[in-house]
Design a protein around this nucleic acid. Structure first.
Length: 292
DNA sequence: CCACTAACCTGTAGGC
DNA sequence: TGCCTACAGGTTAGTG
């Protein structure tokens, strides 16, 4: 489900209700998602206040009053939502064991202005996971991540340095979170289309003498533009993505190529028809005419 | 280290 | 309606 824009959308939705809230209790419906919950997970969160809600790549990071950080990755189908009844009828609020089929974690929150809230984490496929850590350096999930594509330090030279020796196709290289962190299957296809680069192009062919090809400049600019526009649109909803308030995103209406096999290429004056190919087991969409 | 595949798990859409 | 296959936004473990 979620790439950088979707995770950022979730972060913003959660922040409004969770920042400043006291975590009264955490209940797990099972011992694991993709990975087991760490030892002492519920105790580490219980009794703490959420100080800040941040995002790194596709990870949500909740800074807690005890100095710990609670990390959450949504996998493909992870969703946070606030339970309606607890929001609308706080007086009738009752703690309950997670009972929905794929409701795996419940958080009882008390917000100083908003009162009692119940936050529920749902994840049908259970590719998501949660963790806690003290220092970022000790977190194996974050340690090897590449730069944030929307961060100040990210530019064509930096990208060239990271892909100059790679023979893998651009599609695979941009999906590699160690190269740049936050893109997924949708936004890689979209960014490559904007830069007129084929997903099959060998990464090293876009770097000569350690200098970025002009198309890498376009790629970085296109990547930033797409991600920014998608965040403004509340992300993309293909099937089940929802913001924390239950709303769908609408950036999917503005895809140039993703999931548009057989449609006309939207590049002005281009006569191409969008194609779908499979690379490393996943669909890539591109225009065979304006991407080379 | 690099590149590629399989695996994790459930739901849904499409063909017959 | 049922059965079967293919596919879905991600990441890690294992193999050469």
């Amino acid at each position: 489900m979620p790439e950088l824009p979707e995770v950022e959308t979730v972060r913003r939705g959660l922040a409004r209700h969770i920042e400043g809230a006291h975590i009264e209790a955490v209940r797990l419906g099972r011992a694991d998602l993709r990975f087991p919950f760490p030892q002492g997970f519920t105790q580490a969160l219980g009794g703490q206040t959420v100080i800040a809600t941040e995002r790194r790549a596709k990870y949500l990071l909740f800074r807690l009053s005890n100095g710990l950080t609670w990390l959450s990755h949504l996998g493909m189908t992870g969703t946070f939502r606030f339970e309606e009844r607890a929001l609308k009828e706080p007086s009738r609020y009752r703690p309950a064991k997670p009972d929905g089929k794929h409701e795996h974690v419940e958080f009882d929150l008390v917000h100083p202005q908003q009162g009692r809230l119940r936050l529920i984490y749902t994840d049908a496929r259970r590719f998501g996971f949660m963790d806690i850590f003290e220092q970022e350096a000790e977190c194996a999930y974050l340690r090897h991540l590449g730069p944030e594509p929307l961060g100040n330090g990210f530019n064509a030279s930096e990208l060239a340095r990271r892909i100059g020796n790679k023979r893998a196709p651009m599609k695979a290289v941009l999906l590699d979170q160690r190269v740049v962190a936050g893109l997924g299957n949708i936004y890689v296809s979209e960014a490559l289309h904007r830069a007129h680069i084929l997903p099959t192009a060998q990464a090293s062919s876009l770097v000569q003498n350690e200098e970025p090809d002009p198309r890498l400049e376009k790629l970085v600019a296109g990547m930033r533009a797409i991600l920014t526009e998608a965040i403004e649109a509340g992300g993309s909803t293909l099937r089940d993505f929802r913001a924390a308030n239950g709303e769908t995103g609408y950036f999917q209406h503005r895809f140039a190529v993703y999931d548009r096999e057989g449609e006309a290429c939207p590049t002005p004056l281009c006569t191409g028809v969008i194609r779908r190919i499979v690379q490393s087991g996943r669909s890539s969409f591109y225009c065979p005419v304006c991407q080379h």
